[in-house]
Design a protein around this nucleic acid. Structure first.
Length: 110
DNA sequence: GGAATGACATTTA
DNA sequence: CTAAATGCCATTC
């Protein structure tokens, strides 16, 4: 923690990620890369790390975030739980990978 | 202030 | 295509 060069951001990186996650409509998913890029950063891993803390597991649909390759990646509650949730939302998961990944992928630019 | 960690990404073999 | 190695960034210990 930089006590001197600390930014004036009241919201941490993870807070910004949540904002974007809330923008993701049901039945769609996003990638860590897209989120990081949307924040004008390349903290791909930092984004996932923010979810790892999982401060609000229900307020934020963290289960709608997957890897750029279309893989699920992981989930604090368990990968199986993530698959269940995504499947319930209408997303097809096969062998731990999202089918029609680019179709369900949500663009923050929209 | 510094080292360690992680739900990643990209490149190379 | 699969697997391993390297890099990257923010947060936490």
């Amino acid at each position: 923690m930089n006590s001197k060069l600390k930014k004036n951001n009241h919201l941490t990186f993870n807070e910004h990620c949540y904002e974007l996650l809330l923008k993701i409509p049901k039945g769609r998913v996003s990638t860590y890369k897209a989120i990081a890029e949307a924040l004008n950063s390349k903290a791909y891993q930092a984004v996932g790390n923010a979810m790892n803390s999982n401060p609000n597991p229900v307020s934020v649909p963290c289960h709608r975030v997957v890897n750029t390759d279309g893989r699920l990646g992981g989930y604090a509650f368990g990968s199986d739980r993530k698959i269940e949730l995504l499947t319930e939302e209408g997303i097809v998961i096969l062998d731990g990978k999202v089918q029609d990944f680019k179709r369900v992928l949500f663009d923050f630019k929209e």
